[in-house]
Design a protein around this nucleic acid. Sequence first.
DNA 1: ATTAGGATCTTCT
DNA 2: GAAGATCCTAATG
Length: 210
Amino acid sequence: MQHCGPRLPRSFFDREVDVVARDLLGRVISNACDGGPVAVRLTEVEAYAGQDDPASHAFRGPTPRTTVMFGPPGHLYTYFVYGMHWCANIVAGPDGSASAVLLRAGEVVGGLEQARLRRPRITGDHQLARGPAGLASVLGFDRSTNGADLCVPAGDLAALDGAPPLPGAVRIGPRVGVAVGAEMLQRFWIDGDPTVSAFRAWTQRRRTRP
DNA sequence: ATTAGGATCTTCT
DNA sequence: GAAGATCCTAATG
């Protein structure tokens, strides 16, 4: 499999975050680290608009965790959630805007065997990268890939051109699982694609301990 | 088909 | 100390 083909230029990511998010649909992202290569065609993404967005990790200013978000676009921002999952974003917008696109779902189009090994409980290949944690898992995105530069032709990580979705095939709606800023229509997905995750509105989580 | 709950731990308040 | 950009299984209608 060709996993280090043409990369998107920095200018691709240096636009309004929702424009970048929309334009990432149908593109292929790949990673060859640690046993790869695995490639995923993106079918669902969400935009987070930096310090203007109450749902963004960057809303309250820079912290150790969000350092990468405040840097130049085109880098990977990974974070750990709920004590067990990693999720991956691509930093977008001008340098310092702290915006990012959460990669929510996609179709595995390369390295299927490796992807299956990384998600042994999944039955049905279109579920392998359905949901942000599953997508990150399949691609091997974790702490070790935080800050990786998608625009530099070194290493094993690449954002490749893919077939763009047909006109009218992109749908827009509220983001999944966000408590604040829920009214913002910043989720983009390819209509009818079986790999798109199920929408779940935010609900109060029960306390795990008395 | 839909919902409820548990697992598990980092991050910032 | 509390909440969180989730996933999976089990129970229920």
